[in-house]
Design a protein around this nucleic acid. Structure first.
Length: 645
DNA sequence: GAGTTTGAAACT
DNA sequence: CAGTTTCAAACTC
């Protein structure tokens, strides 16, 4: 906020200086002048920021991968842009107004100094950084802490934002940052499922304001030093790191008065939406309406959640568990999806088991939850109480083991923890698979190998993922309701069923149709719901991006499944970037983008159905056309976004 | 709830 | 890379 103004003022000043340089008095005045303008100009400044942020958001969002966004987000904290961030955040944050104001003033002064040093360069630098960083994934690899300092140099240090940030954080240094970034990055992850995560994160915090921050912070920062201060002493501090990430994501949401909400949250319902911003609430409402949507994001949510937790200690898990349980209770959605999907009471059973929902609950007995057999592990989530696993090592306590195992698995198969289902566009890129050939908009990465299930049961990962089988599949007798391997779409299901002359065929057909419908519902909902929250986040993120420097930390892989671990593990930039882009970005991004505008979201979510759900429809109805995929993903998204915003 | 089926993951 | 074993989810009863 302040920075831009300052910069502007500064920029302007030079001209004035040229005029008045002659007289030292003027110079003196000039030196003083910047200060006032900065403070006094808040309005213009805001506008400027808005303008500044918004345009890039539109442009950037599409271009940027989720990971970038995430990374950026984190970066922002550190780098120069701080002032803006600070300004925004400080108010948002629970900092006492007085303190915040005082700090702001102080910061402004510092900013001026810093800005004077940096001045225009800063701003310019800003943009440049973004572009550069975005473009170069390498930067992402760079240790989070180091870059900002280096880049900004003294300026960054001096930068009020930095100070603020440091103060808030208690000045834990790099190591914390890395972690923090990694953890936060996960939260930031944009994969559609993630949206829910973000929600949850918010939920978490809101739900247990005291706990959430503290817990979160611990996760973020191993050193407990900051925690007490942040959480207790200064609400702001507590919120600080975590919140920032969250805030940024939820900025809009929280705007209304997060502090209060957070404070309220303590007493108030944890899982409840109320804590979340209006948008989120609306979304949730919509989601509830949609009901089915949750399934997707459930999964993701829980995952991310836990992912975020990963770093965290058991306490986090506890909170998560609580939140999960609460959320589950609150949100009937997930079960509906699977229930619908299978349309059988059993599904409810599953739901009861907790499986249906976002949270994965395993039942491992021999794998110790350290193999991909374990759904929790595979999803990048720690096992939680509801899990009935035996000798489980997939717990924060055994973080090292988990990580090591994970690395091993990844070393074997870099994509082991990547989302299994990828959208068609991605597939096209990766496999070169013709969209036209592939019935479904999304495909299973590796493809299934079903022999007896005819890809009509959840044994089939394709079917389970709600996607049609593709060329990659080696299944036999594929009758995948979402799209056959041969390319026949769901629409063809009828034909398939016709083919099946068996009496059961009718039943199956009904089921399959249900499934397909459910699937559509689910997808629409899921897309709508996740998308909406995502879109919001993205918007915010975009804004943040604009404000913030490029991402240094991990490439936030959007993949829902891999989320946690990915963040923690240094990813192969290539792989991840591709996947991320393809999956999160390509798949969801477009949708989100198309819906990205809040307006769109509202419009869509409330009804629970999107106006034009691309891939969903195709998959469900089997009416997918490869062409459609491409169109939907790539083309529409950008235009739609820009105009709206 | 127990048992069976299934196919992915892991192993050889 | 192919075949086999292991494993846990999905499913059935």
């Amino acid at each position: 906020m302040d920075t831009p103004q300052k910069s502007i003022t500064q920029i302007e000043t030079p001209v004035s200086k040229s005029r008045f340089e002659d007289s030292p008095v003027f110079n003196y005045i000039n030196s003083l002048s910047p200060i006032r303008p900065v403070k006094s100009i808040p309005n213009p400044h805001q506008f400027s920021t808005l303008n500044f942020t918004s345009p890039p958001s539109v442009f950037t969002s599409p271009h940027l991968t989720s990971s970038h966004k995430e990374s950026r987000f984190f970066k922002t904290h550190h780098p120069s842009p701080d002032p803006t961030i600070l300004v925004q955040e400080s108010p948002d944050d629970s900092k006492s107004n007085e303190e915040a104001a005082a700090e702001a003033d102080a910061t402004t002064e510092f900013n001026i100094d810093a800005s004077t040093e940096m001045e225009q360069p800063q701003i310019v630098k800003y943009d440049v950084k973004e572009t550069n960083l975005d473009e170069t994934t390498d930067l992402s690899l760079v240790p989070y802490a180091s870059p900002p300092r280096k880049e900004n140099g003294s300026a960054s240090e001096d930068a009020p934002g930095m100070e603020m940030y440091d103060n808030v954080q208690g000045k834990n240094e790099t190591p914390d940052w890395d972690r923090l970034i990694a953890d936060s990055s996960e939260f930031l992850i944009f994969s559609s499922p993630n949206d829910s995560e973000a929600f949850r994160c918010l939920m978490m915090q809101r739900a247990s304001p005291s706990q959430a921050p503290s817990v979160m912070m611990p996760t973020m920062q191993p050193g407990s030093i900051n925690e007490p201060e942040s959480s207790n002493a200064s609400p702001y501090g507590a919120v600080s790191v975590l919140h920032r990430g969250i805030r940024r994501r939820c900025l809009d949401f929280e705007m209304p008065g997060n502090k209060q909400t957070s404070s309220e949250n303590n007493t108030a319902s944890r899982c409840v939406v109320p804590s979340i911003g209006l948008h989120l609430n609306a979304l949730l409402m919509s989601t509830k309406d949609c009901t089915t949507n949750n399934t997707t994001h459930d999964y993701s949510c829980s995952e991310k959640y836990q992912v975020g937790l990963q770093g965290s200690s058991s306490t986090l898990q506890e909170t998560l568990d609580q939140t999960e349980t609460e959320t589950r209770e609150d949100v009937p959605v997930e079960p509906t999806l699977e229930e619908l999907h299978l349309s059988s009471p059993k599904k409810k059973r599953q739901l009861e088991a907790g499986e249906g929902e976002s949270c994965k609950r395993c039942n491992c007995k021999k794998s110790k939850c350290l193999k991909l057999y374990c759904e929790c592990f595979a999803a990048g989530v720690y096992c939680i109480e509801p899990c009935s696993c035996i000798d489980c090592f997939n717990k924060p306590i055994h973080e090292d083991t988990v990580l090591a195992t994970r690395k091993q698995i990844e070393s074997r198969n870099p994509l082991a923890f990547a989302p299994k289902v990828i959208k068609s566009s991605d597939l096209v890129l990766e496999t070169g698979d013709d969209a036209s050939k592939t019935p479904a908009s999304a495909r299973h990465k590796r493809g299934c190998n079903c022999k007896k299930s005819n890809c009509l049961k959840k044994y089939c990962e394709c079917f389970q993922g709600g996607v049609g089988c593709s060329i990659n599949c080696r299944c036999e007798g594929c009758k995948n309701a979402f799209g056959r391997k041969d390319g026949s779409a769901i629409v063809d299901m009828e034909a398939e069923q016709e083919e099946e002359n068996e009496t059961s065929v009718k039943n199956r057909r009904a089921k399959t149709q249900e499934n397909s419908e459910v699937y559509l519902m689910r997808k629409e909902e899921s897309s709508a719901l996740p998308a909406t929250p995502m879109s919001v986040y993205r918007q915010q993120l975009v804004q943040l991006k604009n404000m913030m420097p490029p991402p240094q930390s991990v490439l936030g892989v959007g993949s829902s499944s891999s989320g946690m671990f990915n963040s923690q593990y240094t990813r192969k930039p290539e792989m991840k970037s591709l996947e991320t882009v393809a999956e999160d970005g390509a798949e969801e991004m477009p949708e989100i983008l198309s819906h990205s505008s809040i307006d769109n979201i509202n419009a869509v979510s409330p009804n629970g159905k999107r106006v034009s759900p691309p891939h969903l429809d195709s998959s469900s109805s089997g009416r997918r056309s490869g062409g459609r995929k491409l169109i939907l993903q790539s083309i529409p998204t950008f235009p739609s976004l820009t105009p709206q915003h």
